[in-house]
Design a protein around this nucleic acid. Structure first.
Lengths: 189, 189
DNA sequence: TGTTTTGCAATGCGATCGCATCGTAAAACA
DNA sequence: TGTTTTACGATGCGATCGCATTGCAAAACA
């Protein structure tokens, strides 16, 4: 056989090509041929690592999900207010990394509306994110329904991401809105 | 020639078929053939009324935009708080009508991220919606940056819509969140 | 060193795509 | 009544799609 190859690494490379196509030309431009071309490999290689297109897309979805999760996990701060602020801002297309991931997320989110296999992990992952945000809120402002505020904040940031991607809101205003919203939540009760 | 036909009505019928396909199977399932089948007409008819697929999609987009706009315009209340609440709830998939329109909107929103021809009208339409919501806020709670709160509320409702469509949030909780968020905004300062 | 197994590249297939073309029944118009 | 124009239905075309198949060079293994 040819040199033993890092199977997961190869899949990851292809997965990133999927995300790049997704971000620049949308979901309907994602074909085996386009992905192969974007990755700079042959179509046969793509097929070798993914049995079907659906499997490839699902892998790419898990990949950016993990990536966003990792970025969230990398956020730290001793001050819960600062922590929460950084966490929410990390969900917006502000940094270079986030700017390249957000359009991919948006495409997958929209597809999740009509594809239960994408919606399921999103539904399952949401509660723990809500719980974590709620715990941060409680640390700053004990009392009040922290979970409710957490859900509202996350929905707000989600919508803000979409509006930024469409160009309705620029980065400066977005940060301002997050800060204002955060202040309101954290100084209530 | 055959009986003179209401050209706009025919286009509207096809546009609705587009929306139905869009809502149930996503953007990549929208083909001339599927749309024709969904509308119960021949493919030739679809081509007769739309020169290209893009033109058809753009028409469908304008159609649901107008429809959502009409639903918003139908909301009235002498009390600005009630008015604003009804307006925001109208943007969520709560009624039968809104439940069928929201997935279509979500699909178009995602496509707008990579398709400027869809993003442009959204960018242009947003400010007046913001202005109107801001004016309602000002009526209830003079002072404070009403426009900022309007933008935040609209982003929040946008994100909430997406989360509802994916099944992260059910209708009951969504209404609760809107009310809570609204109270916070309208009783601040 | 021979055998086996791995990692592809290449090619082909049937289905579907958007779109162009052609034919035609029928009603508006002269 | 004859002509023209409208509204299609039908069919075909080249491109592209996802996927299956085949072939083969090369390295791990015996």
């Amino acid at each position: 056989m040819p040199k033993q190859v890092d199977h997961d690494e190869r899949r990851r490379e292809i997965g990133e090509a999927v995300c790049r196509v997704l971000a620049t030309r949308g979901l309907d431009a994602v074909s085996l041929r386009h992905v192969a071309a974007e990755a700079g490999v042959s179509m046969g290689r793509v097929q070798h690592y993914f049995a079907t297109k659906d499997e490839m897309l699902l892998f790419a979805f898990n990949q950016i999900s993990a990536r966003v999760g990792a970025r969230m996990g990398a956020v730290h701060s001793p001050d819960p207010h600062t922590y929460l602020r950084a966490l929410l801002l990390e969900l917006l297309p502000l940094s270079t990394a986030a700017r390249s991931e957000a359009p991919v997320l948006a495409a997958f989110l929209a597809q999740a509306v009509v594809e239960p296999r994408l919606a399921a992990p999103l539904r399952e992952g949401a509660p723990q994110m809500v719980a974590f945000v709620a715990s941060l809120i409680s640390q700053v402002r004990p009392g009040g329904d922290a979970e409710r505020d957490a859900m509202a904040l996350l929905a707000f940031v989600d919508g803000l991401m979409m509006q930024m991607l469409i160009g309705q809101v620029d980065a400066l205003v977005a940060v301002e809105l997050v800060d204002h919203q955060l202040d309101r939540v954290l100084t209530s009760g």
